[in-house]
Design a protein around this nucleic acid. Sequence first.
DNA 1: GCATGATCATGC
DNA 2: GCATGATCATGC
Length: 454
Amino acid sequence: MKKNYTFSEVRNIVENMIGKTFGELNNYKISSENYNKGSFGFIMEEDVFKYGKNTKSELDIANLNIELKMTPYKINKNGTLSAKERLVLNIINYMTEYKNDFYDSHFWFKNKLIQIVWYRYEDNKPKSDFLITDELLFKFPKEDLPIIINDWYTIINKIKLGLAHEISEADTMYLGACTKGENSKSEREQPFSDIRAKQRAFSLKSSYMTQLVRNHVSNSSAERIITDIDENISFEQIIENKIKKYRGKSVIELKKLFGINSNSKNVNELIVARMLNIKGKVAQTDEFIKANIIPKTIRINSNGSIKESMSFPSFDFIKISKEKWYNSELYEMFSTTKYMFVVFREVNNDYIFSGIKFWNMPNSTLNNEVKDAWSKTVEVIKNGNVVKDIIGGKKFSNFPGMADNSVCHVRPHARNANDVNTLPIPDNKTGMTEYTKHCFWLNSSFISEIVKDI
DNA sequence: GCATGATCATGC
DNA sequence: GCATGATCATGC
């Protein structure tokens, strides 16, 4: 049974939720151990707004065009806030959504007005005790809408190309297409290919929700790169327009131009910030945080090769040994992160800035080569088969190397060899219970291929 | 010159 | 003190 509301009724209801726990709202009808993923939303729909569970593809409060969303955030060790999850919106109907323009899309129909209610997630606390702390009747801010629109078209264009099965959350900036439904049975048909594609939903990325919660709940904001709002220009084009006049200039020239005296390793980072007219760090700008874009500097040798492979955060041997691929840290990272490669080419002992490329791991590569390297790594750890040999004090491992995989390998990444993580079972050969921290690296040859035309 | 182990440097 | 981006060092 659906009810009509006025905006002020909705306002009152939502404001009354703040400061209450889920247990209080629900009169403790759901016992703490019986909470599941859907409980938080269900309590809002059932106990607060008092209408039946809404599983249909219609708006929660149809007469006001409002969709209701309950979403968690957490407090980090350093006191900042982060969204705990992406905000999952409507499922993408591959067979129909591509026929629309943005403003007549089902996405826009469902999500142009979202009543967001935030609760504070805390580890080791009964779910019924989670506290509701904030709310916002959310409309896409005018500075974000152009990017959302571009994201929507990026997803739609992949459907039109018959590549719905190749969609990755990292293809886009703020609006992602996240998988929904955990097994292969949740695959759907797509209009321009016979290959079945994973069911996906539009979502606001975790990184976007993090920035939103920081803005709204803790009132902190970040420096912005985009100054002119124009939905006909993509973010990548905006960046290209800003940096193109510096292409071909050497690091020495650029340092002079921007008045940078530093010789430290992060000098290239400073140069890029100046090109984009940013005072702080590029990675800390509003756009980069929201879109989860990580800048990486790449130096190409005069012979065209790249000397160094690219490192990522080290992994926890115990954690990774317990993971399943689709919820592994590595899968999560590559399926949601976009990278901005800043390319410098070596010429006469100086480095020439040659351009910028945005990149994210293609789905097929992720689920083939990367998955393969990950699986082998997990096997090695689980079997206690870590150490291959120790020669002259150097430990050689059985982890996948460059020769085993065309995309990535596993190597140490630590302060020194004594900087270790604990192994889940002792190593067969040496009995070691801990081992130098390791991480996945993208092979230099793989990166070479990506940036060869930059 | 490449593959792989090891470590430096910076910033929070 | 630690995470992370970046790079060095060595042996084949």
